[in-house]
């Protein structure tokens, strides 16, 4: 995990959770969500996949991708 992700996780812990999933170890889930590259970030809300993006993403862009995808209460 890129240090920036850990940083974002800590910074936005009250807005969203960041989880890690070993795509190699559990290929079925990866295949289910068609994860083909790494790192890939899939955003879920309410049990639904609402966003996916990947690669070495700058912090601001990462955060923006997530916030744009989720329905944050008050936004």
């Amino acid at each position: 995990m890129a240090p920036v992700v850990a940083e974002i996780a800590l910074e936005y812990k009250d807005t969203f959770i960041v989880a890690k999933f070993n795509a190699i170890k559990y290929p079925e889930i990866s295949q289910k969500y068609q994860v083909r590259g790494h790192p890939s970030y899939l955003v879920f809300q309410g049990g639904e996949l609402v966003k996916r993006f990947g690669g070495q993403t700058p912090k601001a862009e990462f955060v923006q991708n997530v916030l744009n995808a989720i329905d944050v209460e008050g936004n």
Binding site: V5, F16, I17, K20, F21, A23, Y33, Y41, V66, V72
Partner: peptide, 25 residues
């Protein structure tokens, strides 16, 4: 960041009431 396995993917990720970003590494 919490570690998720395929066993608890549904209960942790899909059942989460809080938006969750899963880092497929």
């Amino acid at each position: 960041p919490i570690e998720v396995t395929d066993a608890d993917f549904d209960t942790v990720v899909l059942a989460s009431e809080v938006p969750i970003v899963v880092d497929f590494y």
